[in-house]
Design a protein around this nucleic acid. Structure first.
Lengths: 356, 356
DNA sequence: GTTAGGTTTGCACACGTGTGCAAAGGTTGC
DNA sequence: GCAACCTTTGCACACGTGTGCAAACCTAAC
């Protein structure tokens, strides 16, 4: 208001007050644009609000001024009013693992396409669980939180829900939580794997997992063991190391030197590829001496050096379900939590003997 | 103020005004905490501001109230004042490619560790360039922008710089831009690769790249071709397809059926692995008949099925340089743009004949 | 008891934006 | 020319936070 009466003085006054020098200039505000265009600040705001009432003349002048000054609306201030941002918090660890990377790639792409942005927090260093990360995300007033790694305690999930922020757990445990959960059908997948090995005539069977006691690991391994036992076979079990290629390699060396297996299920493709390389190193011919099945169908499994038979979970289905859950939030309904179990399918390649 | 005189009426009044029902309750504000603790809002703010002046008694009461109500500071509002957030914008595409995934993994992890958050925008669908994405990022008043994909025109970079937002280009072109650029030493790496092949006795040499005309591609291919020509050899060139494993496979089929090569440099490990598989498929023995060198040293290159000899760029060096650039921004200095060229090294594995 | 000095507290403003409301302006029909 | 109506515009408030400033309070020294 004083600004219009004495522009130069106010301008320098403002700079003094904010203690900013010219090299680190602040952002252009709608006030600046309004002044240049000779209109009120409201007119500027309305120009950038679809469906608002502005005359063509004013709109043009404002746009011109905005372009001249390089004006960008401040989403922080905007979100302050609407009390919601277009941000979606994403918690993930080991982003370089093929399956995780692919998941993040698709999710971030689709989020952007639908006008949302992705606030990514890497849970790698989260020794005390991911609760602090979720608390941090909440401070950004996100629209929803997607958890791809770690197991949030139900207390923090409740807090999110109480604040209207949906929590979507991807391939995490599904029991006793109030969150949306989207998992691939681990039980059925493991069962299919077991049956495929049995059908190939395997009788000395093993199962390979990492030492991490994640729900996914446990489900896949458990369902596989159960099914194999039904056939009267007690499988050899490997469960140590991290979720990595090297673990598969170690498992091959460990299991194959102790048992003469002819069929192995690895709960993760990445470990399956390591196991395959390890088995070859030990002179086993795949699939003639030994059949191997993985889970996930990562891109590397299709590579010519491997051609791994595996259980595929559809990545696009998964992404789509996550997005559906996020967008369901917007309608403001309640109590309609998603508990989706996505179907899996067997992908036949070259690491299991064809049924005789 | 009226609130303390007639709490219930004001409360319902407020709800009516905001048109919110109980299912979608708003977040708790510092005002709410202050009321419960029986102090002013300033006291609440100061309690959560390190180094502010609050008595132990008040601090305790506030913390108690905050815990009871589940208060989370609103970072959007906070950033509105300080005119800067702890956000760092990251632009990347093809996040599932091993090299990119690894880069993002390290970057997001380190950012979080230093108290910053990662605003990730996937540039996959950016047909009209990444300028719109950067504009979007600017609206969040980020502290800096890291570009790992696409080539931003200098106009948008200038705008960022004018607003005090550093732009850091990772493995992008370095000429004629006002941004920080951090690239690995492509020229030297390609030269080392060429010399290694020549030293192994290769004389019928090829080079494989994708059809994408990215600066990295061009630099690596160009430097390699130059060095080979110095030795009086004209290399066969493959340059089509995407940046993928399949491209390497196609290249092997195409190049090897036309020329009887004994040494090949692939500008990317991913393509090298495809090429290696393709060469094997065509009956070539590696490294006896044919030597192959890649670039990047992705994790898959160390796998037993490949054991690819390659040029390594240190991921941790790269991440560290990016972070250093981001943090240099905070000091507010000017004109001290980074133009780093990170050293590379040859990693000897099993796809090049040992020097006789 | 008084004063000086330190600590704690609340007021009030600022940050940049969206939007209800009423005033102003413009158009049309009689 | 006037009334009725629609469009456009500006004012003023709201969002939730941080912080300078001065008042209030407490402590200790004289």
């Amino acid at each position: 208001m004083d600004a219009e009466q004495a522009p130069p003085e106010t301008s320098s006054d403002r700079e003094d007050h904010l203690k900013r020098d010219r090299t680190a200039r602040s952002f252009v505000t709608s006030e600046d644009v309004a002044r240049l265009a000779g209109v009120s600040r409201s007119a500027v705001s309305r120009t950038f609000t679809p469906g608002a009432s502005v005359s063509a003349d004013v709109r043009h002048r404002v746009q011109e001024a905005a372009k001249t000054l390089g004006y960008r609306v401040n989403r922080l201030a905007r979100s302050l009013i609407s009390d919601q941002s277009n941000l979606v918090g994403v918690v993930g660890a080991n982003l370089s693992l093929p399956f995780m990377a692919r998941q993040l790639d698709e999710l971030s792409r689709e989020l952007l396409r639908r006008g949302m942005q992705c606030l990514l927090l890497n849970a790698a260093e989260a020794e005390q669980g991911i609760t602090p990360l979720i608390e941090l995300i909440l401070e950004f007033r996100v629209r929803a939180i997607v958890v791809m790694s770690g197991s949030p305690p139900s207390s923090i999930i409740d807090e999110c829900m109480a604040n209207g922020v949906r929590v979507i757990l991807v391939n995490r445990q599904d029991d006793d939580t109030e969150a949306d959960t989207i998992i691939s059908d681990d039980l059925n997948g493991a069962r299919i794997a077991a049956e495929r090995l049995l059908r190939a005539g395997c009788r000395r069977i093993g199962v390979v997992g990492s030492g991490a006691q994640t729900p996914t690991q446990i489900r896949r391994r458990g369902a596989f063991v159960d099914r194999v036992r039904e056939a009267g076979i007690e499988p050899a079990v490997w469960a140590s190391g991290g979720t990595a290629y090297e673990t598969g390699m170690d498992a091959a060396r460990g299991l194959l030197s102790a048992h003469d297996l002819d069929g192995v299920f690895c709960v993760t493709d990445l470990m399956a590829l390591g196991f395959l390389d390890g088995a070859r190193e030990m002179g086993r011919r795949v699939p003639d001496d030994l059949s191997i099945i993985g889970f996930d169908d990562i891109q590397q499994s299709a590579w010519a050096a491997y051609r791994l038979t595996t259980i595929r979970q559809s990545m696009s289905d998964l992404t789509e379900s996550v997005l559906a859950a996020i967008e369901r939030k917007m309608t403001g309904e309640r109590g309609d939590l998603a508990h989706e179990v996505l179907p899996v399918e067997l992908v036949e390649r070259a690491t299991v003997r064809s049924t005789s």
